[in-house]
Each structure stands twice: as C-alpha cells, then as structure tokens.
C-alpha cells in the first residue's frame, strides 16, 4: 500500500485530535462508521450561536491511515466556516486533496458523513432546526 505525502503527514501529525464536551449546547457530535467495518470516526464541532461559525473542531478516528487523514483534514476544513458552508464540503474534495486511491474513497465518504452528523447533532440541540440538514447517509458505498 502506498500513501501520498499528505496522508502520511496527517497520519504522523494529526490536526485537532481530542474531544469537546458533548453535553455542551454549542457542541455537535458526529459518530459514524462501525468497528466491524474497520473504521469509526468521531467528529465534534463547537459553533458560535450568534454567527453559526464553527470555532473549534476535534476528532478521534479508529481506522486506516487514510481514514485518520480524511477526518484530520475535515476538522481543518470546517474550522472558520459557518455550518452551512461546512455542509458544502464534498468527499470528492477530500479524495483530491489527499490523493486517495479508489479503495480508500469510503474513508472520505465517512469523513463527509461525520461532518454532517456533527452539524445535525448541533442543530438538533439548538431549536430543532435539524430537519434542513440531510441525515447521515450510508457510511459505505
């Protein structure tokens, strides 16, 4: 298996590893994947209630190097975006940025799902406006 330099970099120096308080009103948590399938991602966002800007993001991932890199990259990308902007992030952009081979595309899909799940969770906590957000799609394609 070969990995791109960017995957190796995220694997060796993952960004934004950690956890936020999932009971906090400002925090949305997404947990996607399954242990049996070989990857589980937890992605959390802390959203400014006034501006809807994602001020902080943390992740933890059980999975291969590409899964770790995809979720690490996802936290970098969502930070500073509004939730609506973050929802525009597509798995194909992650594939491109990390030069993921075809067998690793599911890692990027999972990362996109994790972003959506975290936003969904945050919206649900805040006035139940979550119905505008597409629910988590199937983790694997």
């Amino acid at each position: 298996m070969s990995y791109s330099d960017k995957v190796l970099d995220h694997y060796s120096n993952p960004r934004n590893v950690g956890s936020l308080d999932k009971s906090s009103q400002d925090v949305g948590t997404g947990l996607v994947g399954a242990p049996e399938c070989g990857d589980v991602m937890k992605l959390q966002i802390k959203v400014n209630p006034q501006t809807s800007v994602i001020e902080d993001a943390k992740f933890k991932t059980f999975g291969c190097g590409s899964a770790i890199a995809s979720s690490s990259l996802a936290t970098e990308w969502v930070k500073g975006k509004t939730v609506e902007e973050a929802l525009q992030i597509k798995n194909t952009e992650i594939v491109k940025e990390l030069s993921l081979p075809p067998v690793k595309i599911h890692c990027s899909v999972l990362a996109e799902d994790a972003i959506r799940a975290a936003i969904h969770d945050w919206k649900k906590k805040n006035n139940g406006v979550a119905q505008n957000v597409p629910a988590t799609t199937e983790a694997r394609q």
Binding site: M1, Y3, Y11, G38, F62, G63, C64, G65, A67, I68
Partner: peptide, 11 residues
Amino acid sequence: AYVEGESLLMG
C-alpha cells in the same frame, strides 16, 4: 483492541 490493523502497520 481499539486500533485498526492497517494504521498500526503504517506506524
């Protein structure tokens, strides 16, 4: 337990 094989091999 709790780590995935391929990422372990990568490490």
